[in-house]
């Protein structure tokens, strides 16, 4: 996360973009913390929106324009709505849900820290020697993404469609069984 800042030569005289990046990062982190600690279920989902939106802004600041708007469209616009749907359909009363707390919070914390550590390690290891230059050309535009995708990653792209089809079929099978039982 700090790659852009750390790799920049003028670390002690940050540019406006870098300052914004750090500030938005802090906000995102704060929103994420509130998401997991709040006792109100729907509030948690809404704080998740803030966290995901903050992430989108971070992408934007790293000039990954396309990914940023994908983040907004897919995560804020549909995954969170899906989540809210799920909450509203099961039980999401206004006010606190005392039974929303599980006893495994310490285990959960351990798993979260471990997962975060793994991710950070993977990212640092993978991108050790590359950095995003904010001074030259914007590098994350839709065209560039498209070129990458269809020059180098065609097979994963096609495999993805099969994966999504499998997810779709799975969802339908599950919901159908549900309706037959009723």
């Amino acid at each position: 996360m700090n790659l852009a800042v750390a790799s920049h030569p003028g670390f002690l005289s940050p540019t406006g973009v870098e300052i914004t990046f750090v500030l938005v990062g802090l906000i995102t982190l704060g929103a994420a913390l509130v998401t997991v600690t709040t006792k109100q279920l729907v509030h948690a989902a809404l704080w998740l929106v803030v966290a995901l939106g903050g992430l989108a802004v971070e992408y934007l600041l790293l000039t990954a324009e396309f990914i940023a708007w994908v983040q907004v469209l897919i995560y804020v616009g549909s995954v969170v709505v899906l989540l809210l749907f799920g909450l509203m359909m099961t039980k999401a009363p206004i006010g606190r849900s005392p039974d929303a707390d599980s006893d495994n919070r310490w285990t959960a914390l351990a798993v979260a820290v471990l997962a975060a550590a793994t991710l950070v390690w993977v990212v640092v290891d993978a991108f050790r020697s590359t950095w995003v230059s904010l001074g030259g050309a914007a590098q994350g535009s839709t065209e560039v993404t498209g070129e990458f995708l269809f020059r180098q990653w065609v097979l994963p792209f096609e495999a993805l469609s099969v994966l999504l089809l499998a997810a779709l079929v799975g969802a339908i099978v599950l919901s159908r069984r549900d309706s037959r039982e009723r």
Partner: peptide, 15 residues
């Protein structure tokens, strides 16, 4: 539950 199935379909297709 139908609403939920629709939104699930949408997420997949949107991706």
């Amino acid at each position: 539950i139908r609403y939920y199935v629709y939104s699930f379909l949408y997420v997949i297709f949107a991706v």
